[in-house]
Amino acid sequence: MAILVVAEHDNTDLKDATHKTVTAAAAMGGDVDILVAGTGVKDVMAAAAKIDGVRAVLGVDHVSLTRQLAEAMEAVIVPLMSEYDAILAPDTTAHKNYMPRVAAKLDVMQISSITGVESADTFVRPIYAGNAMATVKSSDSKKVITVRTTAFNAAGEGGSASDKMLADPASPSTSEFVGEELTKSDRPELAAAKIVVSGGRGVGSSENFAIIESLADKLGAAVGASRAAVDAGYVPNDYQVGQTGKSVAPELYIAIGISGAIQHLAGMKDSKIIVAINKDEDAPIFQVADYGLVADLFIAVPELEAAL
């Protein structure tokens, strides 16, 4: 069996989500190749070639792939799939965007956000925001899979896979990149951070979020938020942790002023240590927290920062 893993990268650095996806692919058994699609991908390809257990790294370098637009990714991947039995990609927004296109073109049903590999055709995935886990067996001849990377350990580095450049794809004619507004931050990325400090509706305002950010900076942590805090406009949507946001599994997750709605828990319950600070002692977040502190966050958070 031959498996293609699509790399997560920003045209400069290879992201850890790739290593985790390789682990999921390896669990299916077979040869694992990595596709790096982007512009100026040489460095990313070199990094991908070091991942343990990888056979070959395929590179495709074209301006239409700089932002990995869905139509362009479909055009690159679908023809490649005649050589592969399965394709896996991290379930980040970049890949969730085009993977169903690939599946539809191959006439197969996508298996989304897997958290476990039972065999080459059977997978575990969360449904209902993680309130239930479904084990599904695919009868499709090719498997198109997105991977909940927080559920897999990163593959090690020490390999030396071969590399190969693919021919330029045709540029899609019906969609074009116009621009982007990326949150500028010196903090670690939410999905990859060792420590995440998240604020909820209890934080009360956009201005008050400064105390969450200040604690995060002291800890070298990423800043997250509950959907309630995002809906209330305290922080941008890409801070959101939960079913409709990002899934995180850091060493330490500190939930501040977060009640612990099901949809939030779905995105953080795999964290190693969970700390909750909330003035409501009956808040559901305490049912999943390893350490709970019933306190007014406006007193406890600055105190915590000072104590570190």
């Binding site: 298996i111 309130n131 239930a132 084990t135 599904v136 499709d140 319950k269 350490y291 502190l293 104590a307």
Partner: peptide, 27 residues
């Protein structure tokens, strides 16, 4: 259908830990 549901189960539970009395105890 292309996928057959083998089974649907409860997610692995996470048990509640302990409440700490102060920031100092938490640290």
């Amino acid at each position: 259908p292309r996928l057959t549901t083998v089974k649907v189960t409860e997610p692995a539970g996470r048990s509640a830990g302990i409440k700490v009395e102060s920031v100092e105890a938490l640290v």
